[in-house]
Simulated assay, not measured.
Amino acid sequence: MIRTDSLQITPEILGLITRVDEFKGAWRALGTLAPDRLSALRRVATIESIGSSTRIEGSRLSDRDVERLLSNLQTNTFTTRDEQEVAGYAEVMDLVFASWQDISLTENHIKQLHQNLLVYSDKDTRHRGHYKTSNNSVAAFDEKGNPLGVVFETASPFDTPRLLTEMVTWFNDERAANRLHPLLLIGIWVVVFLEIHPFQDGNGRLSRVLTTLLLLQAGYAYVPYSSLESVIEQSKETYYLALRQTQGTIRSDAPNWQPWLLFFLKALAQQVHQLNRKLEREKLVLAALPTLALQIVEFAREHGRITMAEAIRLTDSNRNTLKQHFRTLVEQGHLVRHGAGRGAWYELR
């Protein structure tokens, strides 16, 4: 049974919820960009989410590696475990974005999402879509993918089916009764899911997929356009500390939800902040840039980078004219240059 009678709504928690909900309410007005611009924002956010979520669990692929892999997903040939995990995460994210209204929170759907998440992972063939049969634990990894140690122990395989049934029933009952604010409800559900750690592997990634699903179902429609996973990756130490502090109290008579909920709500607020900055930049870029420069920026945003050769093919302009536009875009802070000469390439700042 999940106990929330000890939950305290502090001014800080209330302020964070208010900040996120204000953006949620303003999203329609803020999000009136052209469909192609929204599509480009979503593509960048998806790449960041996939890269960050898999790196939190030890992957070594950069966002650029992820972008390159996504452009070849139709090959279905992924030689390394990192590539297999990225491909699976990409597919399950696409599924959630396309069908979130039809994916009710049931054990069968959770198992199906887990199976989809690990569909390309060779070493996970036997246990994907099935609850764990041996003990596991939450481990932390550094930026190079090396394990740092165990963060906390998790539920036993014997207790897992019962605990999952209880938490799914609790969430659906609470959501129907509307007793808790949706962000608090989702935050508590996610940390309990991680405390149980129901599958042999893939629990962290699945928890972030489920977070996105539940936020979309709660009306936070901006979620696909800004990466919550990248916010978590940038705060990994705080993430693991908050998990540890709350996890150890969940089965007590007075769970301490505060550490995790503060981290979760701050991450959501940072996600909103980053999206707001992107939207403001979009407006400034659209209003101020010449057509040729705008084409360059849009290509870089959609593909993650741009070279002189790509700009020539894109715009059918001469090299000297494009050099001047690239120089101006770098000076104005829109682009960052990497390399020199004909090997140079540019990405958004």
Rank of each mutant, 00 (worst) to 15 (best):
T77F: 14
T125C: 06
N108C: 14
E48I: 11
T246D: 00
M167Q: 05
V223S: 05
A26R: 13
N178L: 14
R55Y: 07
K236V: 11
A287L: 09
A155I: 00
A90W: 00
D253L: 12
P198V: 06
S156G: 04
R43E: 14
V192Y: 00
E107A: 08
V190S: 03
H303G: 06
Y120K: 02
G58K: 07
T246A: 09
I312E: 05
P259V: 03
R68I: 10
L241S: 06
L268W: 04
A242S: 09
E302F: 10
A242L: 05
V191M: 05
Y239I: 10
A287V: 05
T46V: 11
I110T: 08
S59R: 04
R175I: 01
G51W: 02
A242Q: 04
F326N: 02
E229M: 06
I232Q: 05
V119P: 02
A140Y: 01
Y220W: 04
H130T: 14
K123H: 11
R277F: 15
V191L: 06
H109R: 11
K24D: 06
F299N: 08
L105P: 02
K278M: 13
L185M: 12
E298R: 13
L16K: 03
N72Y: 11
F158K: 08
A29S: 07
R81T: 03
S252R: 02
T154F: 05
L268C: 08
S235T: 14
R349I: 14
L95F: 06
N72S: 12
E282H: 09
L185R: 12
L268P: 01
T165N: 13
Q84A: 10
G341N: 07
N72V: 09
A139I: 08
R208C: 03
V272H: 00
N116V: 13
L213E: 02
F78R: 13
H114P: 09
R175M: 01
P290N: 13
E298G: 08
S6P: 07
Q200E: 15
E282R: 11
S71N: 06
